[in-house]
Design a protein around this nucleic acid. Sequence first.
DNA 1: AATGAATGAGGTTTCATTCAT
DNA 2: CATGAATGAAACCTCATTCAT
Lengths: 211, 211, 211, 211
Amino acid sequence: MTTVRRQQRQREWEALTRRAIEEAVVRLLTKSGSQGFTMEQVAAEAGVAKGTLYLHFKGKKDLLDQVKEASLAPLREELEAIFNADLGPQEKIRELVANQLRYFDERRDLFKVLLEERQVAQLQRTRQQNSRYKYILGRIASVVEEGMRIGVFRSLEAAKVAAMLFEASIAVIGQRLWSDHPAPWEEDARFLVEVFVHGIAARPSSRERTT
Amino acid sequence: MTTVRRQQRQREWEALTRRAIEEAVVRLLTKSGSQGFTMEQVAAEAGVAKGTLYLHFKGKKDLLDQVKEASLAPLREELEAIFNADLGPQEKIRELVANQLRYFDERRDLFKVLLEERQVAQLQRTRQQNSRYKYILGRIASVVEEGMRIGVFRSLEAAKVAAMLFEASIAVIGQRLWSDHPAPWEEDARFLVEVFVHGIAARPSSRERTT
Amino acid sequence: MTTVRRQQRQREWEALTRRAIEEAVVRLLTKSGSQGFTMEQVAAEAGVAKGTLYLHFKGKKDLLDQVKEASLAPLREELEAIFNADLGPQEKIRELVANQLRYFDERRDLFKVLLEERQVAQLQRTRQQNSRYKYILGRIASVVEEGMRIGVFRSLEAAKVAAMLFEASIAVIGQRLWSDHPAPWEEDARFLVEVFVHGIAARPSSRERTT
Amino acid sequence: MTTVRRQQRQREWEALTRRAIEEAVVRLLTKSGSQGFTMEQVAAEAGVAKGTLYLHFKGKKDLLDQVKEASLAPLREELEAIFNADLGPQEKIRELVANQLRYFDERRDLFKVLLEERQVAQLQRTRQQNSRYKYILGRIASVVEEGMRIGVFRSLEAAKVAAMLFEASIAVIGQRLWSDHPAPWEEDARFLVEVFVHGIAARPSSRERTT
DNA sequence: AATGAATGAGGTTTCATTCAT
DNA sequence: CATGAATGAAACCTCATTCAT
């Protein structure tokens, strides 16, 4: 009983230290520019000894990976909730895009750095086979397919559409991160979806096909 | 006269050496993965001494910048030609996208590395003020505006549309670079423009607004 | 009474733990090569916590010393028995050498490691004053002197002869440990004593002195 | 011509630096005990920067190997000269042993350290297959065989005799290095050979066989 | 008595850059 | 101009030992 409680407390403490270290990394990344924190700096910032870092993380790469991972986990949950929500395909897409923009806006400083180094991308598609990335694309594709099934979207390769939508969002997010005075995220989200859904062509008249 | 000719020859030699060094960097980047060539390797690959590198380039960063710059110069010229060509807005956009996809396809190995490290992006928008990037966006925006003026595009913020188009292209290019068997570039280009111009919404029926 | 018994039990438990730890070290030494086990590995292998090691041993050096000590104790007892046995000098020498070779053969793996790092030697003559080493040499010297006294050995410096015999044995043992297919230890022991006792010179004729 | 001379000079300078570094290692080994000099110390002692060490040696292991190698090279040459000299087998053996003892005496401090860590042995028989070691043993064996052929040695396994003689020499050398007041090397050399050649048995009487 | 998280000095190696030749 | 040996600041990582629980 006592043993169990002690283990419990220790695990909590362990998690706390991890968090402290990860947060130190985030602070360093956002503060002193992107191009590489040192383990020494991390230790100092987190208020632990250098060796301690290696008790919690396998090495520098692992530490950075975990930070990236942790920084995206909440977003993933939000997106998952949207996928499972009782919404129509168009609404889901709107929500997905809006959530992404909002999320990155909230942690601007960190993502500015991570995205600049394509760390986010690397995290998402390491070795071109990252399962998380594939999973999200698959989910988006499902939404698109659903839209086609019920007739609100026209028939296109769902997988390609999904990838394009996702990447375009990232692109817009990048845009926003690097511009000094980005428009409100709601506006950009609406714009992105609007273009994506209806295209830029003048509607009634432009009956001519592209190609 | 002799002096002039000698200067001439020297400048040519200087240019030759620069090229040799830059090509050595490209070879190293494509060959041994991305993660950082050393000045030593560059010197060896180029067949010059380490010190020589510093006669032609200010340092490692400068060298890398020049390589990236040089690797994109031809593309910039091609795009410029398209901007100046006697084509309608839609055709121009089609051409622009197609050219980009083709260009990156041709030097897959190099750009895979550069893009993976967001080097291309950094080159294009270093410190959020990169003039080249702004210039291109401005040109694309002009095309879009022209399209609005003559009524083939509907009225949207041209600058935003331009940025979105450009970034979406980059995103698709990234997609293509990292997938092992990408579709022919012509196909992806057509797809990209198709979606961008007409949207994914089912056409006749989808009269409802996207908020 | 209870107190006494408890103390008794505690001392046994303490001895057991020590043994477990020492055996863990031996396993590590023979297993993963020689080049240095870590206290962490020892703890894991012994199934105790790192801190526990320091309750039983002063530090790493002490631990290693104890292991070496323990690994040689049985041999020392065997040799002691021979010294005290009722045998003639030649027989004693034969037995001493034979026993050493056999003993090291039995624990090949461990001694291969210890000898490779001259750990055995260090144990035997740490700081040039190791009393155990001196004790053994003294005992061997006594045997040699006895042989001289009764006329089976010729008159030579007994101390030097003892040292030479002992070191030569160690040398042969080293030889045997490092060769993949050593001859049976009986054979090498016989050979060693034969040469040591009678020399390599052709006998009847070689009356000439060696300077 | 100038180029050649410059290369010549550079190679000499290079050799000089190497020597300086190696000597720094020797000084450190003999001075501050054996158990490990640091590259930092070496650099300081040699009066060069840490990085310089890595221009001349692949790493710490390489550096130590080279030092050991260099410290034994002269001895190897001396022994080679003896092998090739016009001497009888007994004289050759006497000379070989004497030379070894003298050589190690001359550089007592260094070899005390190297031998203590079995570094010499490791150098000589790394991976049980060291060719240099085998070569020397083979040469000694030849001398022994020659002695058998001309009848001064009795018929014994030459290879084993050679190994035993060599190892016994090393053993005596070790003895001498660690004793504070060793006898003159001439004396020990004579003693070693005397025992080795004629044995310790009282001569005329000891007709009985060992075994 | 046992634990094991934390420590932090210490180690090796890399590499962009300089500068005497 | 070209060279390349030398530099030395960092960087990452290990591990024996301590000590609060």
